[in-house]
Amino acid sequence: MTYVAQTPEQIRGLIAKAKRRDVAFVALGVVALGIGFATFVALFVDMLIDGWARLSPEFFAQFPSRRAGQAGILSAWVGTTLVMIVTAAVAVPLGVAAGIYLEEYAPKHWVTDLIEINITNLAGVPSIVYGLLALGLFVYAFGLGQSIRTAGLTLALLILPVVIVATREAIRAIPGVIREGAYAVGATKWQTVRDHIVPYSMPGILTGVIIGMSRAIGETAPIITIGALTFIAFLPPAPVTGDFPFLSFEWLKAPFTVMPIQMFNWTSRPDEAFHANAAAAGTILVFMTLTMNALAIWLRYRLRKHIKW
């Protein structure tokens, strides 16, 4: 009596049994993927149908209005774009620097372990909490006002943990022998970081930044908390001026609204016509997010082409 299949029949029977499990798992995977994909498509298509009639060039060029037919998203998309610029400008350098410090410079002991756990947990803190923090800190304590800069700083705090974690993971993916290779020719820590660590981890860092930005672009709660307007019929001052020095940062102090708040405002109105506006704005917001993701994929592909170990 043997316990191991030996005759060709036994071996074939064994293989057939094992292969049935393969088929079962593939079926399960396809169903799981289908549920996720179908949900997204259904939501998106439903929104697209509702908003289709409102999608026109004028929709982008008009301010909000009491008449649904004339209302547009000019102030909202400009606001979202400017807030995102501030968010990226603050979160990327801070997050990347913190990630590099933790990974390359910080001594490894319980304090850094504690910091690491905290950063990971911060990524899970509800965004409204960031809004309350920003209201107390940026709006009242620092007196930055209910402005684009406050919103940008708030969202930067929100995505900072994501950027830090992505940076650290990208750095950890660099093989130790590459790092040792740099040190072996006499490079200092900073030279190694500048010439090797940062460039080789850039694709991973960018991915993290875009994931964070995609989260930030749809955030409503913290932006409402710091006091964004829901109805605004003017644009912030232009960043480029006709007079010397031709650059102006007055827009940072301007009141603003963003896409999700504009949508929220429209959906809460009783007039059905405004709901179509909200659906149209939602479609555009999804496209903005998808565009950012596409940009991330393209950049990652370009940067990774030459990086192999």
């Binding site: 093989p175 040792e180 040190y183």
Partner: peptide, 20 residues
């Protein structure tokens, strides 16, 4: 140690060219 590595160079077990 950087001074040491400037005088004593090293070749590793697995080829480790930089991705440059």
């Amino acid at each position: 140690p950087i001074e040491v590595r400037m005088r004593v160079s090293m070749v590793f077990q697995k080829p480790n060219p930089f991705p440059k």
